[in-house]
Simulated assay, not measured.
Amino acid sequence: MTPSLAVIFVNYRSSKLLLDALSSLYRETAGTPPDVWVVDNASGDDSRDRILDAFPAVQWIDMGYNAGFARANNAGIRAAGDKDVLLLNPDTIVLDRAVEKAYAQLCDSDFVACGVQLLNPDGSPQISGNFFMKGGLNHLLLLPYLGALLRWIGYRSGTKVPNVREAGSVHPVEWVSGAFLMVKRSAIRQAGLMDEDFFLYAEEVEWCARLGKVGPLCIFGEERIIHLQGETVQDGKGYSGLTTRKDFQLMLSNHLRVRKQFGVGWFLVLLLGYTAGVPVFFLGNIFTLRGLSAPAQFARNVARLWWWTPRIIGGRPHFYKVL
């Protein structure tokens, strides 16, 4: 039974995926279905008509502009009143009553928030939970050549792997993927809503850091959903690029999160690491004859990070949207 749970989807031109997600949610709920809110980020298409025609019980919120992930979810969380909430991506398929089973376990535990095991479409496990690395230094692993060296040093020194690809039955973690993030209302009252400075990426990481000060988080590994990773992002899949506008949004959000969670010093360490990665990328591509277009695009994005640095360090509220 899930009457005390509200499920929140953020929609931006993803009605086809959302129809499949909603179908699976209702199909895989044996008891009373949860309240469902769809928060639309000015899709400008027929999403509303398509969703409400198929699922008239869904409650719809129009943001009126592309508000991103944090602001849109916050609108849904506010609308849900006193209910516990599940943030669920439109590019997900619920399996074997995963939502109500996870909710029953969460309610019967001391955990304040949980995720479930995410699966790729072929059934292979996908990273579902994570641990914080001091200062967000794990972001340096994305850097070409330099990242491979840092990864080798980390393995040689026995550094703890910062993520959980395949969870046990109950696997404590420090932050949970925003594709499926279920949170008790009592924890939200203490930790606050998601930080609305974020447009896209890293907002759930920063939120989990605050939720973790209220109580522990976990992955319920026996409950599973399919996550079509990156399908709702308009500029391609994946989260490891460095050269496109989407990649810059990710870089900016990650640096912003480090500033908020760990402070200015660690933010500067990360920024200087990315800056050092520019000449390494150029030299590596020269020696491997891979061309200089990608290093030049990366250098442009790092220069843009420096342009944003005074504002980030200043710490005043700002909507960091560049897409």
Rank of each mutant, 00 (worst) to 15 (best):
residue 160 K to S: 06
residue 67 A to Y: 02
residue 191 A to M: 02
residue 210 R to V: 12
residue 4 S to D: 15
residue 162 P to C: 11
residue 256 L to M: 05
residue 70 A to C: 00
residue 117 Q to F: 02
residue 54 A to M: 04
residue 103 Y to T: 09
residue 172 P to M: 07
residue 46 D to A: 15
residue 154 G to Y: 11
residue 295 P to R: 10
residue 75 A to I: 05
residue 38 V to W: 15
residue 78 R to K: 13
residue 14 S to K: 10
residue 316 R to N: 10
residue 214 V to G: 03
residue 165 R to F: 05
residue 94 V to D: 02
residue 273 G to R: 00
residue 193 L to Q: 08
residue 224 R to Q: 15
residue 132 F to H: 08
residue 153 I to G: 01
residue 155 Y to T: 12
residue 122 D to S: 07
residue 73 N to E: 00
residue 285 N to M: 09
residue 216 P to Y: 12
residue 199 F to H: 15
residue 2 T to D: 10
residue 48 R to P: 04
residue 253 S to W: 01
residue 200 L to M: 09
residue 244 T to R: 14
residue 150 L to S: 01
residue 197 D to E: 12
residue 169 S to F: 11
residue 35 D to E: 13
residue 6 A to D: 12
residue 74 N to P: 02
residue 44 G to M: 08
residue 104 A to P: 03
residue 239 Y to W: 12
residue 237 K to Q: 09
residue 148 A to H: 13
residue 64 G to V: 06
residue 11 N to Q: 13
residue 172 P to L: 05
residue 296 A to N: 06
residue 236 G to I: 02
residue 18 L to D: 07
residue 121 P to Y: 07
residue 72 A to P: 05
residue 134 K to G: 07
residue 66 N to Y: 12
residue 22 L to F: 12
residue 195 D to M: 05
residue 290 R to Q: 15
residue 206 E to N: 12
residue 274 Y to G: 00
residue 98 A to P: 10
residue 112 V to I: 15
residue 139 H to I: 01
residue 73 N to A: 00
residue 15 S to K: 13
residue 148 A to W: 12
residue 29 T to I: 03
residue 5 L to G: 10
residue 239 Y to V: 11
residue 206 E to D: 10
residue 254 N to L: 09
residue 208 C to F: 06
residue 158 G to Q: 06
residue 261 Q to L: 11
residue 220 F to M: 06
residue 68 G to I: 00
residue 305 L to I: 00
residue 132 F to K: 04
residue 178 G to A: 11
residue 101 K to N: 13
residue 2 T to M: 15
residue 239 Y to M: 07
residue 110 D to M: 08
residue 231 E to S: 10
residue 68 G to Y: 00
residue 53 D to I: 02
residue 115 G to R: 11
residue 255 H to A: 09
residue 211 L to K: 07
residue 190 Q to Y: 01
residue 87 L to S: 07
residue 206 E to T: 05
residue 229 Q to C: 08
residue 44 G to C: 13
residue 240 S to T: 10
residue 95 L to H: 15
residue 273 G to A: 00
residue 172 P to D: 12
residue 217 L to N: 04
residue 18 L to V: 09
residue 277 G to Q: 01
residue 311 R to M: 11
residue 193 L to V: 01
residue 187 A to I: 06
residue 201 Y to V: 14
residue 114 C to T: 14
residue 30 A to T: 12
residue 125 P to A: 04
residue 160 K to L: 07
residue 126 Q to G: 03
residue 249 Q to H: 05
residue 7 V to F: 06
